Simulated scan of single mutants.
Amino acid sequence: MRLLTLKSVLVATDLDEASPFALRTAARLATLAGASLHLVHVADAPVPGGESRLRELFREIAPDAPGLESARVVGGVPAEAIVEQAARVGADVVILGPHRRGTGQTGELGSTAASIVRTAPCPCLVTATELLLPLERVIAAIDLSEAASGVLSVALSWASALRPRGGKARLTALHVTPDPGEDTVRRVREEVERARARARDASFVEIHERLGPGSDPAGEILRLAASDSADLLAVGTRGAAPPSSGLGSVSAAIARETPCPLLLVPPAAWMAQDAARV
Rank of each mutant, 00 (worst) to 15 (best):
L10M: 04
S215Q: 12
A140W: 07
A26M: 08
A197K: 12
V278T: 15
H38D: 10
A195L: 06
V94G: 09
E84Q: 13
T13N: 08
A12S: 11
Q273V: 05
V188P: 01
L262R: 06
A114C: 06
E209L: 08
L109G: 02
W158S: 08
E190P: 00
F204S: 13
P217S: 03
L247H: 10
A81N: 04
A26K: 03
E136I: 00
S115L: 14
W158H: 13
G239V: 00
S245W: 10
L144A: 09
M271I: 00
G50K: 09
L23K: 05
V138T: 14
A275S: 12
I139N: 01
R137C: 00
R170N: 09
E146M: 01
P134E: 02
P242K: 14
E190F: 08
I254A: 05
A18I: 11
T172P: 00
L57H: 02
V176C: 11
K168L: 06
A147H: 14
T172C: 11
D274G: 08
P180A: 05
E257G: 02
A197M: 09
A161S: 15
V185T: 14
P134K: 01
G166E: 04
P217M: 01
D14K: 01
G110K: 04
I142D: 05
V250N: 04
A155D: 03
T184K: 10
A86R: 00
W158F: 15
L15D: 12
V192L: 15
L174N: 03
R88Y: 09
H208D: 12
R2H: 13
R59N: 08
A173R: 02
A197Y: 10
H38W: 04
L233Y: 07
L37A: 06
A161R: 02
L109S: 10
L15G: 13
D274L: 15
C124N: 07
D92R: 01
R198T: 08
T258F: 01
A141N: 05
G76S: 05
L174W: 07
L23T: 06
A276R: 15
S249E: 04
D228L: 15
G246M: 09
P243F: 06
S8P: 06
T31M: 11
L3H: 14
R24N: 13
D92V: 04
L171C: 04
R186A: 14
V11Y: 03
A18T: 07
G104T: 13
S36P: 05
